[in-house]
Design a protein around this nucleic acid. Structure first.
Lengths: 339, 339
DNA sequence: CTGAAAGCGCTTACAG
DNA sequence: CTGAAAGCGCTTACAG
């Protein structure tokens, strides 16, 4: 175990030797944890400068049992919603002196479980959970670091808090908006119903349908842009007179738009279209996409705060529902505007 | 420094005690680094199971001076090109038993520099550098862990290797394709010329213009989708007869499409359009975007391999240029297809 | 095959 | 104010 000269790295010992003090004193200077004689402090500072010493974070982390890291577990780096969430978590963590450690677990349940274990064994200070599957649930039961669930209610309960959007109301708002816009044959593209947000969005749609005595018209689809084409064939076979579509998220909405365009169906003139999430691409689409926005930044901020405080919450504070807001763009249009 | 009972965590000592062996033996069982008496091994395995013991990665990392981590430094989580790169690096690292540690440094030079230091102090085994600015260059001069630069030539030279695409040829290919498609007034939207790929792409365009005796027509723009609108105003003022546009990347191309659409300029009938990168959204756009694809997966694979091997390369192997390929979609069309 | 010891690089009670 | 010591949780020479 002889270090090669090449990757030589200065340690606190050398700085101490160079400055003629003990390692403890160097540590105190670096961390400002105690008063140090001015002249000695100067010598230490010089020595640090001279050696280019940077404290080893691993050693620190081992001692304080905290890596100053917030883990974020997501199901995909390819879904812009999650990378946006990542950007927000990163920012929120940074403001509090933490770094984000991002883990894409895909849909792999084994990887989900082991990732949770790995994060704990890395002395991560807390985990924001935005992926939800059976592996995650299993991992959660043995997880001894604080976890906040985002975008779902974590049924196992073994989390500090559940933060999510009012997707149920979102589902209702989507339908309501299309009704106001004059649509009468409104189809809901359900996402994978094992996913919390997809379920809530659908249920909001369904309940308002019932209240209004409108027939419920649905078609199934993954939260994935590739699924659009085949799904749309089914949709048109079942509901040839469709004039409004609620997509389970923006990615599916964009994919749906493409399929509509191919069939020379105009949006919004022939069919109106609404998505969920307000990902960046929603504005970029031509026509730009009407959608329901989640306040991702606020959710991220709150998640990080909760993890860093890490105190028990009363039951009523454990769940926090954030409002969604309707962003009206070009894929929907109120009837009067046709005039 | 008394640990609360709550976050109690079993250590290798307890496992050892429970199994009636020394910690060293437990370590040997876990790591398979030496033969262990079958019966003792059994007892250790049982004890691990019983305690739910998971080895502390931080302690391991401190000892072996390796965290089994590959750092990835990018300039933005909001640019799909970089999140795609992240997905590829993550996969490549995973295949070799490493994890990816993703750092978004934005355009912040100070953060860039400190991120590089932090990665080294975390015992990261190597860094893939996909962000390039002055802060990065400064950080690089003192960086004692292996670094591979992606998507640029790192002028400071203090890197294991430079991996990038043949953006220069890409610039030529873009122009050539538009010429073949019958365009005669071709404008190149230059990206920020401090960025390597933007510079190369532009130079390819420029050189072919000169060779063909075509006037060089350019307009400037950031690598950012917000920049499109204002830029296009300039473009039309300068070049009202434009019939082909080469965008510095797909994000800008999509933004440009939107602005063209607003002006009721048809693509590809009136103006043809080509981007760079082949981000996911390129297929999703309606019409889908013709673009030049980078082999991101291969670059990621190679970058990770080089870091893990970490051996000196001969000068000629230090630079590796990957080919780009033209992906023809709906925003360009050969003249004969109009017939 | 196996355990006691030393050490990875830091930090903080403890004693002076 | 300051240093020697102990320890964070692991792993591997070393000796038996």
């Amino acid at each position: 175990m002889i270090k090669s000269m090449g990757d030589y790295m200065s340690s606190i010992r050398e700085v101490a030797k160079l400055a003629g003090v003990s390692p403890a004193t160097v540590s105190r200077v670096i961390n400002g944890t105690a008063n140090v004689d001015t002249e000695k402090r100067q010598r230490v500072l010089c020595a640090i400068d001279e050696t280019g010493f940077i404290p080893n974070e691993v050693a620190r982390s081992l001692f304080r049992r905290s890596a100053k890291l917030i883990g974020l577990v997501i199901p995909s780096l390819k879904n812009p919603f999650f990378t946006q969430l990542a950007a927000c978590i990163d920012q929120a963590a940074g403001e509090q002196g933490y770094r984000m450690f991002l883990c894409d677990v895909g849909t792999d349940e084994e990887k989900s479980k082991s990732t949770l274990q790995m994060l704990a064994s890395m002395n991560v200070d807390g985990v924001v959970l935005a992926a939800h599957n059976r592996g995650i649930e299993e991992g959660l039961t043995q997880c001894r670091i604080p976890v906040v669930s985002v975008d779902a209610v974590q049924e196992t309960g073994n989390v500090l808090a559940d933060l999510y959007c009012d997707d149920y109301s979102g589902g209702r708002m989507a339908l309501e908006h299309l009704l106001v816009c004059g649509c009468r044959q409104i189809v809901c593209i359900q996402g994978d119903q094992r996913i919390f947000s997809a379920r809530m969005r659908y249920q909001g749609y369904r309940d308002l349908c019932r209240e209004q005595g409108i027939p419920e018209q649905t078609v199934e689809c993954d939260y994935d842009f590739r699924a659009g084409k085949a799904m749309l064939e089914t949709l048109f076979r079942r509901y040839p007179h469709v004039d409004g579509i609620i997509a389970c998220n923006d990615l599916v909405a964009i994919s749906t738009y493409k399929a509509l365009y191919k069939r020379k169906i105009r949006v919004p003139q022939d069919v109106q279209l609404i998505g969920f999430d307000d990902i960046n691409a929603a504005q970029l689409l031509t026509p730009s996409l009407t959608t329901l926005r989640q306040p991702v930044g606020e959710m991220a901020q709150r998640a990080v705060e909760l993890l860093i405080e890490n105190k028990e919450l009363r039951e009523k504070d454990r769940i926090r529902v954030f409002p969604v807001s309707l962003v009206i763009r070009e894929t929907t249009r109120r009837k009067e505007e046709y005039v």
